[in-house]
Write a protein that binds this DNA or RNA. Structure first.
Lengths: 200, 200
DNA sequence: CGGTATAAGTAAACGCTGTTGACTTGTCAA
DNA sequence: TTGACAAGTCAACAGCGTTTACTTATACCG
């Protein structure tokens, strides 16, 4: 049932560290992506890769390390934060709709499937800080930059979480372009320097 | 070490279904709240309650059922959604800051500690739909009510998730009142009927 | 070419988890 | 007093992630 196309061990296969590492990584990415982190056991990954279970720990330290490597493969927000400030909310909104909601990347899929598994959270912790909130705050500048970046990040992560929980139902009522415009507008408010008189 | 104040079995204790149920429930709430769902094992809950492990499954079906009952104990948004529309964003923002960020309720604490554990997510799924997005959408009315409610829910859940990941750092830069005002403003935009020309 | 060091791969176990079924024992009604 | 039934117990299950000691293939070197 498992080890579908990855091919089983067929013990004649020559010993090759890198190839074996890659087999494990590929299987992990595929399974994490389609089923989530917590739902896929080490033994299943190994079986899918046609490889002994112990090799996961040999090459990646632990299942957690395997997750970290899968996640590290993709860039956080490639070219999104770096652009001009005015278009930033729009670009973030597009990213959410196109990647997170569409379920493109292993990262977002894993997040959606096992949204806050302890291991996953701890791996993302550093990532959120270093690859999202940090750069975003730096790009923003001004007072409370980190707080404003955190608010935007909250929305981004929350949308993914709700999408996972709700099954893309409500959020898909809009067509993509409308949703992007809405999100961009909300993110703009998240990133604003001063709430001003505000509502309420 | 465990079963601190809950008292151990001391086998002479009379048999009492309701009392035993309560012991288990109390221990679970306490441990889930302080350490998170995934981090606390059934055996530890049982030991803390001074009760046999099998009783958890006898009374709650499974560990998951115990979680569901702990969570069900608290009202979702008591009296928040029902009030007047104009003050809704402000009330939601206050709730987030006072309850979720301050880490008051078992629900929010469990969410923060093991933010998206599969069991926890599935338990919250129904809850999010029935106790948050549903009523919120109904209170809002108008077109895309569910989508607008989902956006607000995304922010609420996302703030909790980021708080868990960031350890309350960035979001605590503001004092509570400023944070509430900011959140209220953002939520207002989430709930708006029409994005209008919007940003970008 | 033969022998050997070294790394690749294996097998079996460890302690843990949630869960189950068969068992004993206390309690209460007839 | 006795029977029935529920409350509580115990030991085992299968699965998990991980570790240890082991075998075996490969590649280098004399």
């Amino acid at each position: 049932m498992d080890q579908a196309d990855a091919g089983e061990r067929c013990p004649g296969r020559p010993r090759d560290r890198e190839a074996t590492r890659k087999r494990i990584l590929d299987s992990a990415r595929e399974l994490f992506t389609s089923e989530g982190y917590a739902q896929v056991s080490s033994r299943r990954i190994a079986a899918h890769a046609g490889v002994n279970v112990a090799l996961i720990n040999r090459y990646f330290g632990a299942k957690r390390g395997l997750l970290a490597e899968v996640i590290a493969e993709e860039a956080a927000f490639p070219g999104i934060i770096e652009g001009d400030r005015a278009g930033l909310p729009r670009r973030l909104a597009e990213h959410v709709v196109n990647r997170v909601l569409a379920g493109g990347t292993p990262l977002s899929r894993a997040l959606e499937h096992s949204a806050g598994d302890p291991d996953l959270v701890s791996v993302h912790q550093e990532r959120l800080r270093n690859a999202i909130i940090g750069p975003l705050a730096e790009a923003l500048g001004g007072p409370d930059a980190r707080a404003r970046a955190s608010l935007a990040a909250s929305l981004l992560l929350g949308v993914g979480l709700v999408r996972r929980i709700e099954g893309a139902g409500s959020l898909a009522e809009h067509d993509a372009e409308r949703l992007i415009r809405r999100l961009a507008r909300i993110i703009e408010v998240c990133l604003e320097e001063d709430p001003g008189a505000g509502a309420a």
